[in-house]
């Protein structure tokens, strides 16, 4: 059963100011508790993306052969486990070389500067079954 709140009583009147009483007692100040040990770092919040990307190195024509060598090596690793036929591998390898090569500028910029040979796909010998 819900108890009803007491009825509000009316304000009867304002009494005269009473004399203040003295402070009887002050309780002692409690001792300062010891510093608690810190808890471990629970985690690190995600860093805000700065939106700034580092400048990347531009390849030059002088690095062409080295790049082609790496393309051959990485292609051998990738296709070594089998999968696509040799002709398709050659196609992919040649295409990557062409794409990379197209961005390698000769720093001479001279019309008479002899250009290295074009990227040529290797002739793939088909096995006769």
């Amino acid at each position: 059963m819900v108890k009803k709140p007491p009825r509000d009583t009316k304000i009867g009147g304002i009494q005269s100011t009473k004399k203040t009483s003295e402070i009887d007692l002050t309780t002692g100040i409690e001792s300062v508790s010891g510093v608690k040990a810190t808890s471990g770092i629970t985690g690190i919040g995600k860093a805000e993306r700065s939106g700034v990307r580092r400048p990347t190195r531009t390849m030059t024509l002088e690095e062409r052969e080295e790049l082609f060598r790496m393309i051959d090596e990485e292609a051998a690793k990738m296709f070594g486990a089998g999968g696509i036929p040799a002709e398709k591998r050659e196609l992919v390898q040649t295409a990557v070389k062409m794409a990379v090569d197209s961005g390698l500028l000769d720093t001479g910029g001279n019309d008479d500067t002899p250009q290295p040979g074009p990227v040529e796909p290797k002739k793939v010998k088909k096995k006769l079954v």
Partner: peptide
Amino acid sequence: IEGQARELS
């Protein structure tokens, strides 16, 4: 192959 490689690249 060369033609296809060009397209692919």
